[in-house]
Write a protein that binds this DNA or RNA. Structure first.
Lengths: 160, 160
DNA sequence: GATATTTAATACGATATCGTACTACATACC
DNA sequence: GGTATGTAGTACGATATCGTATTAAATATC
């Protein structure tokens, strides 16, 4: 991870003419966010993607692999390998799905919740910093992101 | 549950209580955007990341691998393998860097530019759809994204 | 000007992601 | 109720990503 650049202008981004558009910049933001979170929570043993998954699992009654696959727009096979990995860590268990014998629901174990909490403690300050950096615009920015999320999902469904 | 549960549509996102924050949702948007672009430009032979890279290379005088690494927040080794891959495709060439003998600049070849143009033709309509879906908010959303990008970069630099 | 330190890029190995092909259960249709 | 079709999840193989260690050029120190 390349660190300090020295001269105080680490991120040189040539924001060129027709290059900047809403999808492109969403991509760019995500790269930056991903790296930020990755480094911030590194010592927890989770990476940014995993932290997001643990978060959504922690927040509800548990999801099926398919739900997870849709939710995070990942290939089903990718989710399968997540499940294996998380199980190997003792962080999740499979709850049988009474409504569908092919499927099951994913739930965090106590250990899994502890790992999530630890990552969360590392995550919180950088979120606060980001919100500080956004200042008064923080809420609006967040709202616009959700708007964008729905717009992109709509287009995605349309093209599915 | 949560949002639109109605039809058998792909994206059911449980927007749960404290789970939604600006970084988290940036991550979520990116997953969606990534998949949208991937499928849209698939037939061009480029994926979303590659399209972004080709775009930035096409837009300027060419960048060094380090620049690219900073710009897209990717590991230097990842950039190295990009270079190999793109060279294998005949899509880029290395221009020696007169200022630094260890380095070089990446430039698209004519074939590379053609590939980029093809991907661009597939990309344009989905961008238009997204902007339509955003309607009047399109510009504001884009502006907020750039604000967020700068905020995140600032935090990232701080923590570097 | 010689040596020490830093920086740019990469080779290599470990692991992650995902496409293809498959199995097993569920639902539709007759 | 029996067959046909669809859907949930996965094994496996191909390739991508990235961490660690290395090489070579640039910059700093003396």
């Amino acid at each position: 991870m390349t660190k300090a650049d020295g001269d105080g202008s680490p991120a040189k981004r040539p924001i060129v003419g027709g290059l900047s558009n809403v999808l492109f910049d969403a991509w760019l933001v995500s790269r930056s966010v991903h790296q930020l979170i990755d480094t911030a929570i590194e010592e927890s043993g989770l990476d940014a993607d995993e932290f997001a998954i643990y978060s959504v699992l922690a927040s509800g009654e548990g999801m099926t692999p398919s739900d997870l696959s849709h939710w995070m727009a990942a290939a089903p096979t990718t989710v399968s390998s997540y499940v294996k990995r998380f199980e190997r860590r003792g962080h999740i268990t499979r709850i049988p799905n009474p409504e569908d014998g092919r499927s099951y629901r994913l739930q965090l174990t106590a250990t899994g919740r502890a790992a999530h909490r630890h990552a969360g403690e590392l995550f919180t300050p950088i979120l606060a910093h980001t919100e500080d950096a956004l200042g008064a615009r923080a809420e609006k920015t967040h709202a616009q992101l959700l708007t964008l999320l729905h717009a992109v999902d709509a287009v995605r469904d349309e093209h599915a």
